[in-house]
Amino acid sequence: MDALMAALVAAALAQVGDRTAWLAAILSDRYAKPGMVIAMAALALLAASGLAAALGAVIGPKLAPNAQQLMLALALLLQAGGSFFPAKVPERLDRWKIGAIATTALGLFILAFGDGVQFIVLTLASRTPVPALAAIGATIGSLVVIVPAALMGEAAWLKLPLKPLRIAIGIVFLIFGIVLALGALRLV
């Protein structure tokens, strides 16, 4: 259960102002089908998180507990670093001619799979006997942010105070990353 809640919270925080939610808003505006965008986002996020969790399940038993904790600290520190920089405008996928459903599912999968959340999922999955919980938690946490983005559309989404939110979230990730790293190195 720890992996589920940790992944849910980490993913929800990491998605604020991130490109995945932004792309969901763009695609929702383009296709005027927020329900379809949300459904394909859920599928894409679950697939990306599932792959990360599967890799974590393979790597986890090979690592000592301190190494697992240090890897999680590194994932949080990297996510913190990314939060301090503004998100680049995602590719709008205008030239993709594979249909609304395939464009949305594949576009969001590609963007989510390269996201820092997947490294967090991998590290959380490596520390738990039920790695699937990390994937489920990350999917739900990401949807907490992506659903409102898809329902709002791009213009309304970009009016939110995303920059100060990202900085505040970056500070939270930084603090937790440092504390975990110091604990893994037995300095606290």
Rank of each mutant, 00 (worst) to 15 (best):
Met5Ala: 01
Ala21Pro: 14
Phe85Trp: 11
Met5Pro: 01
Leu106Ser: 11
Pro164Lys: 08
Glu91Lys: 02
Val16Ser: 05
Leu78Gly: 04
Ser126Ala: 12
Lys163Ile: 15
Ala3Pro: 05
Pro65Met: 06
Ala25Lys: 00
Arg166Met: 11
Val179Cys: 10
Leu111His: 03
Gly56Phe: 12
Val89Asp: 15
Phe113Asp: 07
Leu78Phe: 11
Arg92Asp: 11
Lys33His: 14
Ser142Phe: 12
Ile167Leu: 10
Gly116Asn: 04
Gly107Phe: 06
Ala150Ser: 10
Ala21Leu: 13
Phe173Gly: 00
Leu111Lys: 01
Gln68His: 03
Ile98His: 10
Lys62Thr: 14
Asp29Tyr: 14
Leu13Ile: 11
Ala14Asp: 01
Leu185Tyr: 08
Gln79Thr: 15
Leu55Lys: 11
Ala57Lys: 02
Ala181Asp: 06
Leu70Lys: 08
Leu13Lys: 00
Pro148Arg: 10
Gly60Arg: 02
Ala24Cys: 13
Ala14Phe: 03
Val188Met: 04
Ala184Arg: 07
Leu158Asn: 00
Arg95Asp: 15
Ala42Met: 11
Ala181Cys: 00
Ala57Ile: 08
Asn66Phe: 13
Trp22Pro: 09
Gln118Tyr: 03
Ile136Tyr: 05
Ile38Arg: 01
Leu185His: 12
Ala6Tyr: 11
Ala181Gln: 12
Leu78Ser: 07
Gln69Thr: 05
Leu158Gln: 01
Ile38Ala: 01
Ile120Trp: 09
Leu111Phe: 04
Ala54Phe: 09
Val179Tyr: 14
Pro86Gly: 03
Ala168Arg: 11
Ala135Pro: 00
Val37Trp: 01
Ala42Leu: 14
Phe84Pro: 00
Ile59Glu: 09
Ile169Cys: 08
Ile175Gly: 03
Gly56Glu: 04
Leu63Asp: 06
Ile98Leu: 06
Ala3Trp: 06
Val9Asn: 02
